[in-house]
Nucleic acid binder design. Structure first.
Lengths: 348, 348
DNA sequence: CAGCGAAATGACAGCGGTGTCATTTTTAGT
DNA sequence: ACTAAAAATGACACCGCTGTCATTTCGCTG
């Protein structure tokens, strides 16, 4: 479906500059800039401002942020790196970060750091554009990537990336506590035989804290036994793990998964293949609160990461770092339990 | 948790320039640039290149894309506007677009156009940064926003925004055909009494095509009756609509919802509140294929928008428009039916 | 080894703003 | 009305890179 009309690009007339406006208004170029500079425009006579604005309007003048950045030595751009396999949660974080930065008058330059893609190159691009700061939001980022980021000459803030040797500020959700609290809850709800489904992957940042927190939480209640299974975060892998677990002679009565998608798999296999009633015959819980968890068909009890707190803190940290020298800060955000109906409650 | 270390910003040493490198290497600044310019670096003597690269490495030189954009008259940046209430589908589209642009060596400047936020301001920001093109990806964009965009002096591509008077290229998913095909399928599957749940909202772009396509699809099979209900895209509103529908004396046996979240609500209410078996006693289908549709608890038959085709086409169109004058093109992407188990199949 | 053309390198003027300083205009004080 | 100080405006160098043109260097041939 073609059309006779053409894109504006065909006009090919380069945008008006402050000099063009100046000439048209019969004033100096400096004055034009002053009119468009908030810090100065109060000190410009109404007459001149009027002339300039009129000329600018006629020429469709729009000041050039690129040129401004050149002298200003800062671009007003924040680089945001997000990992390729971003799930719902990180989308939410990204959305919030974008919103906040936008409201603060900063621009977001978005990059997708697929695990296979060279993070070094992404960082290079960011630096070439002289971004004022970088926020790395990632569900999973390789440790080599971490090493690369370490060399960044511009302020950097990590979201949910735990670095053993912090080289920049970061805000991370306390995986350990989240899992531990869930363990508390599950034990107090009357769980007897526990299983944990992990999704460890060497090339990604490890979330072993979720496992350790859970196991330790159990131990604090005198439970030293927990069946360990693993998947790869997908629904299918959750189903497979569930089959292995439910086929065991010592079938668990409570399953905690480190990701909610796998938990949906567990629930569906349990209900439709093993005819188990949830939560009566099997309790299921998971880390990460995603959309489907709230649906009546799942009502999955989860550990919810506070995306708002995470993004707010990330923004605060990056602003601080840009503002000037500031100490490196590692902020822990506390996840909360989202209690729904997938866990049986007998005791307490 | 503070730390003695500090952010790189504290170093406050401005990045090395090509002149710095030139001085250090004892060559001219022009030569430095040539070494870093792919088009020229073959015509530079190995000796000089070596000197320059060594100096650059020592100084941690990174060429300044901002300065380059200034003379080059193009920034290598594509503005991407995405609507605030972006759902899973648009996240996917955005992810693909980001990936493609990144691979093509272009940068993405992301903006979130909340309905309440001034699109004019977003556009202004984009123009100030002299973006080479703009892609507007939106689930919902107001018509006033559309008017603003119309004035954009840079190439623009609309994704899933149907404009009656096309002023720029766009790629849109054929809502009408998608619904019509679903109507075909539902009738041929043996549906008798149909209902359609809409989500019309004046301030957003209207998706009445989905309704019209559906109704027309039914008519083509001699079905002139279809109960109309409405919600607001949310799970809860779907549940409410379902209750109203299922309370009717002439209860429908087939419900098509213009959004999948509402369909989940329909399914859950039907099963858990009305004890209806799906698909035996009630068929449910929806527009938009989101994650939960594939789960065993729903197995929702949907109209799936081809996110890959949409993003690919958007990229092609924007590149064409940037390349040079090109005719305005409106590309229709055909959605496909994702047949799962939520629709009963009796006839055929 | 002079002499020539090709290749490599350097010098320099922009790109569109900002910031500083000089100049002009306005305002106020006596 | 005259002058000093304050305010408004203009002139201009510079931000870091690109592109053009001038200059230098190099490789060959006779």
């Amino acid at each position: 479906m073609k059309n006779e009309k053409r894109h504006p690009s065909s006009a090919a007339t380069r945008p008006a500059t402050s000099r063009d406006v100046a000439k048209r208004a019969g004033v100096s170029q400096s004055s034009v800039c002053r009119v468009f500079d908030e810090r100065w425009n109060s000190k410009v006579s109404p007459a001149l401002r009027e002339k300039v604005l009129a000329a600018a309007r006629e020429l469709g003048y729009c000041s050039n942020a690129i040129a401004r950045s050149l002298t200003a030595q800062h671009s007003g751009i924040i680089g945001v790196i997000i990992s390729e396999d971003f799930n719902e949660f990180y989308y939410d974080v990204m959305r919030r970060i974008t919103n906040s930065l936008q409201e603060l008058g900063m621009r977001v330059m978005l990059f997708n750091a697929a695990p296979y893609r060279d993070v070094k190159q992404v960082l290079r691009s960011l630096l070439e554009y002289r971004v004022d700061g970088i926020i790395v939001t990632a569900a999973a980022i390789s440790t080599v990537a971490e090493a690369t980021l370490q060399e960044s000459p511009v302020p950097l803030v990590l979201v949910n990336i735990y670095s053993r040797t912090p080289f920049c500020s970061s805000v991370i959700c306390d995986n350990y506590s989240g899992s531990q609290n869930m363990a508390d809850y599950l034990v107090r709800s009357g769980g007897q035989r526990f299983a944990y489904i992990s999704a460890e992957n060497s090339k990604y940042y490890d979330i072993s804290d979720r496992r350790e927190g859970f196991l330790n939480g159990l131990r604090r209640h005198g439970v030293y036994d927990c069946i360990l299974e693993s998947g790869d975060y997908t629904y299918e892998s959750g189903k497979e793990a569930a089959r292995r677990l439910l086929d065991r002679p010592d079938r668990p009565d409570t399953i905690f998964s480190c990701g909610s998608r796998m938990a949906y798999g567990v629930m569906d296999v349990a209900r439709y293949e093993y005819n188990l009633k949830i939560p009566e015959e099997l309790s299921v819980a998971a880390y990460d609160d995603t959309f489907a968890s709230a649906l009546d068909s799942y009502r999955l009890t989860t550990v919810q990461q506070p995306s708002q707190e995470l993004s707010r803190t990330a923004i605060r940290l990056i602003r601080q770092a840009i503002e000037g020298p500031s100490p490196i800060e590692t902020v822990y955000a506390m996840p909360s339990l989202e209690i729904r109906g997938s866990v049986r409650r007998t005791s307490e």
